[in-house]
Design a protein around this nucleic acid. Structure first.
Lengths: 150, 150
DNA sequence: CTCATACTGCTACAATGTTGCAATAACAAG
DNA sequence: CTTGTTATTGCAACATTGTAGCAGTATGAG
């Protein structure tokens, strides 16, 4: 290949990474770009497929570690979707008050960023909240009108 | 053993089970009673230990199936605690508005039933909510005053 | 260009959950 | 109480999701 001296273009992803003092690798860039392109949080498995079909096969373990690093650096955030696997999305606002909707029929996860902010609950004294997860379960518009799919 | 003709006592657990047309088995009764006795949601693993140390060893698979059945029947409910495994507790109220607190330091899960009810968010039209999960993460009173434990 | 070392990609393993099937036990009927 | 039906159980094998250790590669600094 007649590779240029800079192997990867100077994208937003690149900036995000190097600002944290991390090395700009194909995997990190690809994961960030896949998340940027997705309207929904993605699971490890979905990310692997996305990268794979973009001709970017990534080792399972490397992908896990990349995701860990992104979360650690505050670039991405982890969501317990109500299924077995974590989902990941780029870290938007200040961690609080961001709900997700999980369709129990088609399995889709939707970000509900525009909904009314969740009021912090009254906690017993001495408790400190680091972050909250609010997941709504039910049927999305598509599945709701068509009736449940088994 | 000089077993009576009725092998199990007529407990609340027994009533819960037979009201659904299920057979009253040692495992189901033991699981329900363990949950009744616990202030917190229990994981599959914790339940297995509890039953085990009560001299009631249960097969892993049987326990999974028992829990599935209890959830299916609306006797118990499943909680995505933010860790890898599900947790289970007896199904209290009307499914909505029941928050949990997960201490990221000691791993405890606390039920916050007394907090202000969560207002249902504005959803896009056509969406139906079946149930919501609201999990707060942070440090509980004990861990918070003592500082984080690694 | 050279070098230190942050990442990667194996291979193995751990934790959590599921499937299929033969054996057992609940309980309804006689 | 005894018998028969069949819902549950228990076993073994497998599936999914995630981690640990370590040798090799490639990024980025000098």
């Amino acid at each position: 290949m007649s590779a240029a001296s800079r192997p990867l273009p100077d994208t937003a992803a690149r900036t995000l990474i190097s600002a944290r003092g991390g090395r700009v690798t194909r995997t990190r860039v690809a994961v960030i770009e896949a998340m940027q392109a997705s309207a929904q949080p993605l699971s490890h498995d979905e990310l692997a497929s996305l990268l794979g079909s973009a001709g970017q096969d990534v080792d399972r373990v490397t992908l896990y570690r990349t995701l860990d690093w992104l979360v650690e650096q505050g670039i991405a955030q982890r969501i317990a979707s109500g299924e077995r696997a974590w989902r990941f999305e780029l870290h938007h606002d200040e961690r609080h008050r961001h709900a997700h909707f999980h369709c129990d029929h088609c399995g889709q996860i939707l970000c509900l960023e525009s909904t009314t902010p969740v009021p912090p609950p009254d906690l017993p004294a001495g408790f400190a909240i680091a972050r909250t997860e609010w997941v709504l379960h039910g049927a999305c518009a598509g599945c709701n009108t068509e009736g449940p799919r088994p």
